[in-house]
């Protein structure tokens, strides 16, 4: 593989060779795709469909609802709107995604990538390793490290003690802020890598021409660089939004959604309703909402990539 651009694009396929004689033969040679299709139908599509079905029932982990779930129509969805925990959870999820992904990871990733184009090589490499390390580590290990960092006798308070600000139990008093910061710490590497790749393809003479024309730093960034990498920005925003929507382990280890639902995002709420309270019907209803959000963003993502192709 010579360069990433040598990778052919989707949907083009190799060149067609060996025209088969009949439609049967044409069908037969697609046969090897079948195992993948079976797996995807059985383990991805079936759970999604089952989720929508179960969300209209009173299925539960134990008792009558486990043996013989009854059709309850829109009850679960009505309960969602009436319940105080769902609107709170939806709001927390929105804040979590906007603050940690769209603002935090995205902007910090862009800033790091931009700084790396100016900084000395060795500095960039070392900082790159530090940023990527928290992202490559298994999620549960990163979550423990973040827990240790924010806990009452953790490193953050240790650093704040000299200025007289130690002693706060961050995970208890500011749980949302703690998980937002932890997710920025954990996930910024992805945006950084995307933007490094994108900036490397920005022709240097364009931004130098702008410099000669008297454009200041931020003007060049806003009017020259950003428009040039806008498709990378769009894809990146889409992907980190989806990744952040799905974050469970980090929150589960750090706060378990608490205290009193103060950091319960939708995946944590779905888990709690289904497994802690045994209400599979309500849990799948919340999961179905999450899946629908995922479907909308996923479709937008496919559409964005499709746009780029002639």
């Amino acid at each position: 593989m010579a360069s990433p651009s040598a990778l052919p694009r989707a949907g083009e396929g190799g060149r067609p060779r060996r025209r088969p004689r009949s439609a049967v033969q044409r069908g037969l040679r697609m046969l090897p795709v079948v195992p993948s299709i079976v797996l995807l139908l059985l383990f991805l599509l079936a759970p999604v469909l089952w989720s929508f079905y179960a969300s209209f029932t009173d299925a539960s982990l134990s008792g009558r609802g486990a043996r013989d779930p009854q059709w309850t129509g829109l009850d679960n969805y009505a309960r969602m709107l009436g319940d105080s925990s769902f609107p709170l959870s939806a709001w927390l999820t929105l804040v979590f995604v906007v603050a940690s992904a769209i603002l935090g990871q995205n902007l910090l990733g862009l800033v790091i990538a931009l700084l790396m184009t100016r900084a000395r090589g060795p500095v960039s490499s070392v900082v790159g390793i530090a940023v990527v390390a928290s992202w490559v580590l298994p999620e549960i290990v990163a979550a423990f490290a973040a827990y240790a960092w924010f806990s009452k006798d953790g490193t953050l308070n240790q650093l704040l003690a000299p200025v007289g600000a130690g002693g706060t139990n961050w995970l208890y008093s500011f749980p949302l802020m703690a998980i937002v910061l932890a997710n920025i710490w954990r996930g910024t590497a992805f945006s950084m890598l995307v933007y490094r790749a994108a900036l490397a393809e920005v022709p240097q003479d364009i931004s130098e021409a702008a410099l000669v024309d008297g454009a200041r730093g931020w003007q060049r960034l806003l009017f020259v660089t950003v428009p040039l990498i806008r498709s990378s920005i769009a894809t990146n925003l889409m992907l980190i939004t989806l990744q952040t929507l799905a974050v469970f382990t980090l929150i589960w280890v750090m706060t378990a959604g608490g205290p009193a639902n103060a950091s319960t995002t939708l995946p944590v709420l779905a888990y709690q309703e289904a497994f802690k309270f045994g209400d599979i019907g309500y849990g799948t209803a919340i999961a179905s909402v999450l899946i629908l959000i995922g479907v909308v963003f996923g479709a937008a993502y496919v559409w964005l990539l499709r746009e780029k192709r002639p």
Binding site: R26, P47, A246, T284, A287
Partner: peptide, 29 residues
């Protein structure tokens, strides 16, 4: 094949599905 393009787009779509969202239904299944 006419099947390639829709299949690859479905695959691309599948890469972005949040897996945590389907864990409750998967457990049920």
């Amino acid at each position: 094949s006419r099947f390639n393009r829709p299949f690859m787009y479905s695959v691309l779509f599948g890469t972005s599905l949040p897996v945590t969202a389907i864990m409750v239904p998967v457990y049920g299944l």
